[in-house]
């Protein structure tokens, strides 16, 4: 086995659901840590007090601009990591923290919460609230192949990770409205039902073959749009779905 990559989790203004999601891989997490990645930084899981150097930094939570430590740690994580990942809806899009306006105990002065890309450059997004254990697992395996694999594995990992990197370029605003703006308004929706099936808060229903978003329920996590087969669909990866799924399954055994 080639040497492992190093992964850390920086916890900003999030609920720890993203970190728990990593652990929700159960024995898969042990396999990841045994063979592919050393966890070098994470709340409660690793006894390291200060942001270390790492290959991949998963950032959970949005960044509170009024909290000096959050801003400093985020910038330090950017400086010290090769790949910075907005891990989960809050880091990528603000998610539920988009609704914060300050006045809450015990930090009533904390009112400005932004997606981390307002403060630092972000390489890759893993949207949704919570994110999905299998998605962060796939990204971890692909990051390992990208950094430690042979040429063929590097190409596969690059192809796989590209759309998630493009998501990071697309912007840091997400909402169920994206289904209107970037899918239906663009003449691309065919009514498959994926958005409604994926929404973690059931804000999306299918009415006469098209999604209908209850915007009072939407938490702005970005899951519906990024899961939609018409937000992006990369044939080079998808046509090889059987091989890639077998490879990931094989890597986890």
């Amino acid at each position: 086995m080639a040497e492992k990559i190093t992964i850390g989790e920086l916890h900003l203004s999030g609920c720890t659901g993203c970190l728990v999601t990593l652990a929700d891989n159960y024995e898969g997490l042990f396999k990841l840590l045994d063979d592919y990645a050393d966890l070098v930084y994470a709340l409660t899981l690793v006894d390291v007090r200060h942001v270390p150097e790492m290959d991949v930094c998963l950032v959970e939570g949005s960044c509170c601009l009024n909290d000096k430590i959050s801003v400093e740690e985020l910038k330090e994580a950017r400086e010290k990591s090769k790949v910075l990942v907005a891990y989960g809806g809050c880091a990528a899009y603000g998610n539920i923290t988009r609704f914060a306006r300050g006045g809450q105990w015990n930090q009533p002065g904390h009112e400005a919460y932004v997606p981390i890309s307002e403060v630092v450059d972000v390489d890759l997004y893993i949207p949704s609230c919570p994110p999905c254990p299998q998605q962060v697992r796939n990204v971890a395996v692909m990051a390992y192949l990208l950094l430690k694999g042979n040429d063929e594995q590097k190409n596969l990992a690059t192809a796989y990770l590209t759309p998630l990197m493009q998501l990071a370029q697309r912007g840091n605003e997400a909402c169920g409205c994206d289904l209107m703006y970037d899918v239906i308004n663009q003449g691309l929706c065919m009514g498959c039902g994926t958005c409604a099936g994926t929404c973690p808060v059931r804000a999306v229903t299918m009415e006469y073959g098209k999604p209908n978003v209850n915007r009072d329920l939407c938490i702005k996590c970005g899951a519906c749009y990024s899961q939609c087969p018409r937000s992006w669909f990369n044939f080079d990866v998808m046509n090889n779905y059987e091989g890639i799924m077998d490879a990931i399954k094989g890597a986890m055994q």
């Binding site: 299998q134 998630l164 994926t194 929404c199 899951a223 669909f233």
Partner: peptide, 14 residues
């Protein structure tokens, strides 16, 4: 296509 995307990129498909 949506099924395979949900399997390869299970963003909100826990």
């Amino acid at each position: 296509q949506a099924v395979r995307k949900a399997q390869l990129y299970p963003i909100g498909m826990r």
